[in-house]
């Protein structure tokens, strides 16, 4: 989902940066406030960041014969709410843009929007929806992480389609082409991300049930 450096026209690059900035600022404020109120959650915030670091570094082969990577933002979105993931995702993307020439500074705003805003908000919404209709905890986490991952890549496809509409078919035809590259490749990876997120959540629920209960993430029934 990394749009490469310089590969968005100037107007789009600025537009996506302007769109992302308030989320990152608000997320930063809410994370700071939370850590001040509950310093014991600092470690768990580190885990959410670390999970994103690991998963977004793993480029996995897919059935389309190309490689892509998961995002790892679902875990943190469920634990800390979607806003917290905007600054965390921004840190990861900045690291990759500066040191790895993966993504870029001009496309940072657009990449933050897809990976650190749309993905986490989708994950959080799906998780809440799943819980409200009484789906089992593990199923909610899986769906949240997997669909959040997939929608990140759909967002990238939309961003590129808006910037580069197909000369014949317009934005929609262009979207279908980019989605064929990104979203289809991503399907098995999204499933992997969902499964890995559930495994990590199981470990957290087993060894830190009190912490998760304090955060209202799990209720009594989930402890196993």
């Amino acid at each position: 989902m990394h749009i490469m450096e310089g590969f968005l026209p100037v107007k789009h690059a600025i537009g996506w940066s302007v769109a992302s900035a308030p989320f990152v600022a608000y997320g930063l404020r809410s994370v700071n406030k939370r850590i001040k109120e509950k310093p014991e959650q600092r470690m768990l915030l580190g885990v959410a960041t670390a999970f994103t670091f690991v998963l977004s570094a793993l480029k996995m082969p897919s059935v389309t014969g190309s490689c892509s990577h998961p995002t790892g933002t679902g875990l943190g979105a469920i634990l800390f709410g979607p806003a917290a993931m905007a600054p965390i995702g921004a840190v990861v993307l900045l690291f990759q843009a500066l040191l790895l020439a993966h993504g870029g500074l001009t496309t940072l705003g657009a990449n933050i929007f897809s990976m650190a805003i749309v993905g986490p908000f989708a994950s959080y919404g799906i998780y809440k929806l799943g819980r409200s209709v009484k789906l089992p905890f593990g199923v909610c986490v899986f769906l949240a992480a997997a669909i959040g991952d997939l929608l990140t890549y759909v967002t990238t496809s939309v961003q590129l389609a808006l910037a580069f509409p197909d000369p014949a078919g317009g934005i929609f035809a262009s979207f279908m082409k980019f989605a064929a590259v990104f979203a289809v490749t991503q399907v098995p990876l999204a499933i992997s991300e969902g499964l890995l997120t559930v495994v990590v959540f199981n470990a957290l629920a087993r060894f830190n049930p009190q912490e998760l209960r304090d955060m209202n993430v799990i209720t009594k029934e989930v402890q196993a």
């Binding site: 749009i3 590969f7 190309s66 490689c67 590129l160 590259v181």
Partner: peptide, 12 residues
């Protein structure tokens, strides 16, 4: 097994 990011670049 090229990166999908590279493929998107080619598509552009």
């Amino acid at each position: 097994f090229r990166g999908s990011d590279d493929q998107a670049k080619d598509l552009i």
